[in-house]
């Protein structure tokens, strides 16, 4: 082995050693998404409590390949998406950090979106499609946060060319915008087409009997109004109504 070959071998070995010694990199990607413009539609006349917990607002997708790690922080974009969609579909929306904080508030329904799964797939070439899917589940519960009124899993998809070292970042921005546009439109469609959510809104629209008034009568002419009133009102109001009802009945009862 001559000197030249030995020198080349040493160079190659040191280059290999350097590559091996290099630590695995973590790439923090940016998720730049604008709120999706949504087609004008009728809002459900209900007051919603939107729960945006840490699991949702800090959701991130991590993927590893060849020792490197890529992190996609979807949380802030998801938060904006949830606010945009719920404000578009409900008459009034108030946000809360947890289901517990939202329970018992002066609302008609509690909306709790959850980020379930994220996956990406891409081809080998710069012109190959790159795809992202994001699965979100919306759960609507009653104002006490006890019973589920409605739930729906929604999968949004964004597709764009992967791009090269010059176009890759821009293409990724377009891809994420398409992903959230798809997710937003599917979510609005699901909420607006839900008979369960419509019935909550309808129940709110239907005028409730006031605490100091009695309804005209029962549809079955039973005349037993006190039990229904007591069930629908707060406890002191119901007690007061029962007292009035009893005294009224006593006055009208035949001897």
């Amino acid at each position: 082995m001559n000197m030249k070959t030995l020198k080349k071998l040493i160079q190659l070995l040191s280059l290999g050693g350097l590559l091996v010694a290099l630590p695995a990199c973590t790439h923090l990607e940016k998720v730049n998404v604008k709120p999706t413009p949504l087609a004008a539609g009728t809002k459900l006349p209900a007051r919603a409590a939107l729960v945006l917990d840490d699991a949702f607002t800090k959701h991130q997708f991590e993927t590893k390949a060849m020792g490197d790690k890529w992190i996609f922080p979807f949380g802030p974009a998801l938060e904006e998406y949830a606010k945009n969609v719920s404000a578009h579909c409900f008459a009034k929306v108030t946000t809360y950090p947890s289901p517990g904080a939202a329970a018992g508030q002066d609302v008609d329904i509690i909306l709790h979106p959850k980020a379930l799964k994220t996956e990406q797939a891409m081809g080998v070439m710069a012109w190959s499609d790159r795809k992202f899917v994001l699965q979100v589940e919306w759960v609507a519960r009653d104002r006490a946060n006890k019973n589920t009124v409605w739930l729906q899993g929604i999968t949004g998809e964004g597709v764009n060319q992967a791009g090269n070292m010059f176009t890759g970042k821009r293409n990724q921005d377009i891809l994420f915008q398409r992903l959230f546009d798809d997710l937003s439109r599917k979510t609005v469609e699901a909420i607006q087409n839900s008979p369960e959510l419509r019935s909550v809104a309808t129940a709110r629209e239907t005028p409730q009997p006031a605490a100091n008034h009695r309804p005209a009568g029962q549809s079955d002419d039973s005349g037993n109004l006190s039990a229904i009133l007591a069930a629908d009102r707060t406890f002191p109001a119901a007690v007061a109504e029962l007292g009035r009802d009893r005294s009224t009945r006593q006055q009208h009862e035949p001897p």
């Binding site: 080998v124 729906q152 998809e157």
Partner: peptide, 29 residues
């Protein structure tokens, strides 16, 4: 190149599992 293609195929297989998964939902009448 062949290795990258295998890696790409694996990603599409995983994504396909999510695409085809049954979503939880409220089944209305």
């Amino acid at each position: 190149f062949a290795g990258a293609k295998v890696l790409s195929d694996e990603m599409f297989v995983r994504k396909n599992l999510v695409d085809k998964e049954m979503p939880d939902q409220t089944l209305s009448p």
